[in-house]
Amino acid sequence: MTVSALTRPGERDRLIVKLSEIDWLFVLVLSLIAGAGALMLFSMAGSSWMPWAAAHLGRFTLLLLVMIVLAVIDLRVWFAIAYPLYGLGLLLLIAVEAVGDVRLGAQRWLAIGSFSFQPSEVMKLGIVLALARLYHGVPAQRARLSWWLFVPATMIALPVLLVAHQPDLGTAMLIALTGAAIVVLAGLSWRLIAIFSATAIAAVVPMITFVLHDYQRERIFTFLNPESDPSGSGYHILQSMIALGSGGLLGKGYGLGSQSQLNFLPEKQTDFAFAALAEEFGFLGCVSILALYAAVIFMALRTAYLSHSHFGRLAASGATATFTLYVLINGAMVMGLAPVVGVPMPLLSYGGTVMVTVMAGFGLVQCVRVHRYAEVTSGKGSFV
């Protein structure tokens, strides 16, 4: 397939060609994960489609159509909106500080009439696009090691600080790690990576002591010793580990998970959906769903690798990094290997906000695949 094959006269012909370039196996694997999530939500609701399973399937179906629409959009559009979307995300995060809704002690939402949303989700995609555009056309030496690196560092730090102040440590971590992944993939010097890693490790104790809120420090201490408060702050991790361990090799059976069915497992439909799956389907069920996640990540990274555009490579890699971090952080959290930070398992857990972010990111990945033979000029964003 050549560039000309994607730009033949006739809007209908171009649309058919673009649709044929979408990775439909990728779409199938996403659907399998979302379907598994719907089955688990059906089970956790006592064999009822309400209140979670039906909404989960309906939301995924709608967002899958949105993903396909985003996939056929000209890559120049993504390039053009990169900085404006990042700027909009910053303005919305500042607006949260001024007029955001406070819920459960956190100021993370903006309300427009009856509709409310978290602007930090906009920034998850905005930081990917903005950094991909920033590095597009940058000489390798500047990307590897130079004072110019303060520019991307500042672009990452601004939203991270605003989100952490809400406070939302989980989302702040996602934005920071996604941004760092793009900077590394753009060609950052391994010497600098080592220096930054050592600095970050050295800053852990001062940050825990002087920066984090009391409840965030409590989560970390609970993670280190959950048995110290089994009915209080350690309850979430202990119940999750009980669910994981009781599933054994094959699980207790569909709909027979005692921890989730009897509501011992907290936030079972969101943060701990993976633990509920482990209890009912056991180790083999966990391996099966993780294999699907691995397939999604592999196919998305392969798309990034095949792109002829540096912007496309970095944008697709960044969107994939966000998805990968969701999976890794939630998996570690559920297994007691990381503090509980409120990061759900994407497409498996119930939650519209995360699904919107993930599916929009995959729309970008598929757009890069459709236009993988195209180049974007750093000046006007036109194909060459």
Score class of each variant (00 low, 15 high):
residue 2 T to G: 11
residue 2 T to I: 09
residue 4 S to E: 13
residue 5 A to D: 15
residue 5 A to N: 15
residue 21 E to D: 10
residue 23 D to G: 01
residue 28 L to W: 05
residue 31 S to Q: 02
residue 37 G to W: 09
residue 40 M to H: 07
residue 52 W to T: 08
residue 56 H to W: 09
residue 68 I to G: 01
residue 72 V to K: 00
residue 74 D to G: 01
residue 76 R to C: 01
residue 76 R to Y: 00
residue 78 W to S: 00
residue 84 P to H: 01
residue 86 Y to R: 06
residue 91 L to T: 07
residue 102 V to M: 02
residue 102 V to N: 10
residue 124 K to H: 04
residue 125 L to P: 03
residue 126 G to M: 04
residue 137 G to P: 05
residue 142 R to K: 12
residue 143 A to W: 06
residue 150 F to A: 15
residue 150 F to Y: 14
residue 152 P to A: 08
residue 153 A to V: 12
residue 154 T to D: 07
residue 157 A to E: 05
residue 161 L to Y: 12
residue 163 V to D: 00
residue 165 H to S: 14
residue 171 T to V: 11
residue 172 A to P: 00
residue 180 A to V: 04
residue 180 A to F: 10
residue 191 R to G: 14
residue 194 A to I: 06
residue 197 S to F: 06
residue 200 A to I: 07
residue 200 A to Q: 04
residue 204 V to A: 04
residue 208 I to V: 15
residue 209 T to M: 14
residue 211 V to E: 11
residue 214 D to P: 14
residue 215 Y to C: 11
residue 221 F to I: 07
residue 223 F to T: 03
residue 226 P to A: 11
residue 235 Y to A: 01
residue 239 Q to N: 13
residue 248 G to F: 14
residue 256 L to A: 13
residue 262 L to T: 06
residue 274 F to Y: 15
residue 283 F to D: 00
residue 285 G to S: 03
residue 297 I to M: 14
residue 303 T to P: 01
residue 306 L to R: 13
residue 314 L to Y: 00
residue 321 A to K: 14
residue 323 F to I: 12
residue 326 Y to W: 11
residue 326 Y to F: 15
residue 335 M to F: 07
residue 336 G to N: 05
residue 340 V to T: 14
residue 351 G to A: 10
residue 354 V to S: 15
residue 359 M to S: 10
residue 361 G to P: 09
residue 364 L to M: 15
